[in-house]
């Protein structure tokens, strides 16, 4: 089996300030990896470098593309990377406003991503959009409403539908449950868990919430001050943390 994603010696600085340094890991198909750490630990910088939103200073990000096998996405031409972002990758932002078009209908938000990869038949697009709204538990009657009329939890579910409609193989998520009420979080987590299992998705999830990784991630990476201090099986890192920072993190949960 070929790894889906292989990250080698990835580093990114903002001038004198360190973003993340010397990150290495291999993600296999079907694996969900969580990245935890406090604000400023470099976890979002890392995610943005992996997803092609940011250019790392050094290192390689090798993705197993559908058509041409493993390719370094850092050095590939921008149009190819953009194509990956529309097809094989998905990115779920913490704030749904960053991932949705707020003045386009819910159905349009989902359909737009299909059209970006070449779908043209209106009936098919609408049917697929309706199917996906159903899967994220949004009533089909809300299809023509704009997301600004939705609650935060609904907006987040719509963002997930928009991202998954094209059948991506790797999903990046940045604090997908951040900013939501606890009850809404539970529903979203359960939904994500079901989708990840049923579709056999691979994902990289950045969060500061240990309950989220416990529920969703097979593997866990712990970051502090831009560096990976510990990584391993999720329940092993949480039940038997080795690094001082991880021990502090785990023992601080109320």
């Amino acid at each position: 089996m070929t790894p889906l994603l292989k990250v080698e010696a990835l580093s990114k600085s903002y001038g004198a300030h360190l973003g993340c340094a010397d990150v290495n890991f291999t993600l296999w198909p079907g694996e969900v990896m969580g990245i935890v750490g406090e604000s400023g630990s470099g976890k979002s910088t890392l995610l943005n470098c992996l997803a092609g939103h940011m250019q790392p200073d050094t290192g390689r990000v090798i993705f197993d593309t559908r058509d041409h096998g493993p390719r370094d996405t850092v050095t590939m031409p921008t149009p190819e990377r953009r194509w990956l972002a529309r097809t094989d990758w998905a990115f779920v932002h913490q704030n749904p406003r960053d991932g949705l078009r707020m003045n386009v209908s819910a159905g349009g938000n989902v359909g737009e991503r299909l059209m970006a990869v070449g779908a043209r038949h209106y009936g098919d697009i609408r049917a697929q959009a309706e199917d996906w709204l159903g899967r994220v538990e949004i009533d089909a009657r809300r299809m023509d409403d704009r997301p600004r009329a939705f609650s935060g939890g609904m907006q987040q579910r719509l963002q997930i539908a928009r991202n998954l409609v094209t059948g991506p193989r790797l999903v990046f998520m940045d604090e997908p449950t951040g900013g939501l009420d606890v009850s809404v979080q539970a529903r979203l987590l359960d939904l994500l868990r079901g989708l990840v299992q049923r579709l056999g998705l691979s994902a990289v999830i950045v969060t500061h919430d240990l309950a989220v990784v416990r529920l969703l991630a097979d593997r866990l990476m712990v970051m502090k001050d831009g560096r990976v201090v510990e990584q391993g099986l999720t329940d092993q890192v949480l039940d038997d943390p080795q690094h001082a920072y991880t021990q502090l993190l785990v023992s601080s949960v109320l």
Partner: peptide, 9 residues
């Protein structure tokens, strides 16, 4: 038992 299950290193 946890070491065999793998959640203890």
């Amino acid at each position: 038992m946890r070491m065999i299950w793998g959640n203890y290193r």
